[in-house]
Write a protein that binds this DNA or RNA. Structure first.
Lengths: 233, 233
DNA sequence: GTGATGTATAAGTCTGACTTTTTGTGCCGG
DNA sequence: CCGGCACAAAAAGTCAGACTTATACATCAC
């Protein structure tokens, strides 16, 4: 699904990044570049590049005469897609999934409202296409195909909003939806009400009805929150 | 305000990062590590570390036998605080400010609603303190002090939401508020209505009234959107 | 035209020596 | 006993150079 680490430093990151985000090295821990290089059997230059990347994600801080110290969780760049993937792959996956779903519930309705006024004809067409694809695969345990269209749907909405910050959350939403399907409720068919809501959102966007698109999307995200027991049913 | 680049590679980034985000090297441009190293008068190792960081921000892609190519804007990690700062310092500052304000308008109301149910007594106290500080400095061209309290206020709300993704947007909001004060309307005193709204939000959060806190904060963000002519007055 | 082969290129890797900053310590004087 | 100052050790930071590897592109055979 995700491109594995390019080059040696990438493979080091694939191993060290998840270890840090998983709390294997608790905040305040001090690592030394030379030891890490030995442990991963790479040269110091490669190790230094890996540390630089971790530093740019605010996962660690490198200081002279001290070493590489792990920063407190609150300072991590939690919007970095790489960090998100590492955390989703780790132990606090459920917690991460909740945080991201709450974020979705704030962003997606507003994005849908903007999409209603900004979407191009092409995007409207894609939207209805995705919605139809969801309908077509909503019964008979065709969850894989359903998921593909669901992800595409939300991606188009975020892109159509015309706001680059929203657009960049497409990957995040994709991860959340995929994670939910593959780990929570992969047995049953999707909620028919949710499917209907997606179709209606597509209609509202096409009709340019911002208020309606926003409200309908809010209902979709409310459903997502309920699934994770963040809201009472 | 922001920590300048630590070490040589940091100084290279301070120069190269803004150049890329400003479009000085348009997407698709190919740079070569050796040339860059010469240009910045640093060794290849230092240059490589800088490129690695840019790569982790998805600003560039490094491929063998090709060089370092600048990626299209749509792929940049626009949530990276460093990238945000670089862009705010550059030419498309107005555009960036708009995008971020729209993001605020989506996130902050929801965050305020959550804060109403999750804020600790300590946080409630801080909130009223900030609000009072805003009131005290809302007249007589004391914009600097007003700004300090305004930033602190929104930071507390985002932290009190209990959602780590929201909390991490504190820096972004701070940049937006600071940017607005220092470049848009720094002559006149702040809108009295906005000041009142902040006080009322503090009250609502303290009272645990989530719906009211959300609605009031929505009014604040609507005001921010109007200021940038994103919404009609 | 298509496919195999070769080659030049730029990134990737490694090593070792050297520099610089910073922390901690220990000595000395007060 | 304490405060400050100088010194030494430790770890990151920097550099230069040699070597390796992947790959785009051109060339050639069919």
């Amino acid at each position: 699904m995700t491109t594995p680490g390019r080059g040696l430093h990438g493979r080091v990151l694939d191993s060290l990044g998840p270890a840090i985000t998983a709390g294997e090295y608790p905040p305040g821990s001090v690592l030394r570049t030379d030891e890490l290089a030995q442990h991963f059997e790479v040269s110091r230059s490669v190790m230094r590049e890996a540390v630089r990347v971790l530093e740019s994600m605010h996962l660690v801080e490198s200081r002279r005469r001290v070493g590489v110290t792990v920063r407190p969780k609150a300072e991590w760049n939690v919007y970095d897609p790489q960090v998100i993937r590492w955390r989703l792959a780790g132990a606090d996956r459920p917690h991460q999934l909740r945080s991201l779903t709450v974020l979705r519930s704030a962003v997606e309705p507003v994005a849908a409202g903007l999409a209603a006024t900004n979407a191009t004809a092409r995007q409207c067409a894609e939207l209805t296409e995705c919605a139809l694809g969801m309908v077509a695969n909503s019964r008979g345990h065709r969850l894989d195909q359903y998921l593909v269209h669901d992800v595409a749907f939300h991606r188009v909405v975020l892109n159509a909003s015309g706001n680059e910050m929203f657009a960049r959350l497409g990957d995040v939403v994709a991860e959340v939806l995929t994670g939910r399907t593959h780990h929570e409720v992969m047995f049953e068919d999707p909620d028919p009400a949710a499917v209907t809501l997606h179709v209606q959102v597509a209609e509202a966007v096409r009709a340019g009805d911002a208020v309606r698109a926003e409200e309908l999307t809010r209902q979709i995200t409310v459903g997502a929150l309920r699934e994770l027991d963040i809201l009472a049913p």
